[in-house]
Amino acid sequence: MNKNLPLYEIFIRSKNGLHHKHVGSLHASDAQNAIMNARDVYTRRQEGISIWVIESKDITASNPEDSDAFYAPAEDKVYRHPTFYDLPDEVKHM
């Protein structure tokens, strides 16, 4: 038997209206316990009102070594930004 309990990644919503944000990880026997442990480890000072946990092994991540090629297609698409379009200064509220 593996001596380590499974590893969970912890996401916390600090208040309604904001995203859940990754805060770190911890070990727990199952997801319910991960939530209880996350309460004790990451919200001792009212840092959150909602917790998500996901087993680390279930996360698929992009490869940082490919990032140049992976994100390159966005580089030459300046027309996706509002400043690409020339308008006279007289135009207000746009």
Binding site: N4, L7, G24, S25, V41
Partner: peptide
């Protein structure tokens, strides 16, 4: 004292991202 335990846990999880197991 409870904070110290928490700090230990933040740090162990940071170390684990480098590929070393908790145990």
């Amino acid at each position: 004292v409870q904070d110290e335990a928490g700090h230990g846990l933040y740090l162990y999880s940071a170390a684990e991202t480098l590929g070393v197991e908790r145990d």
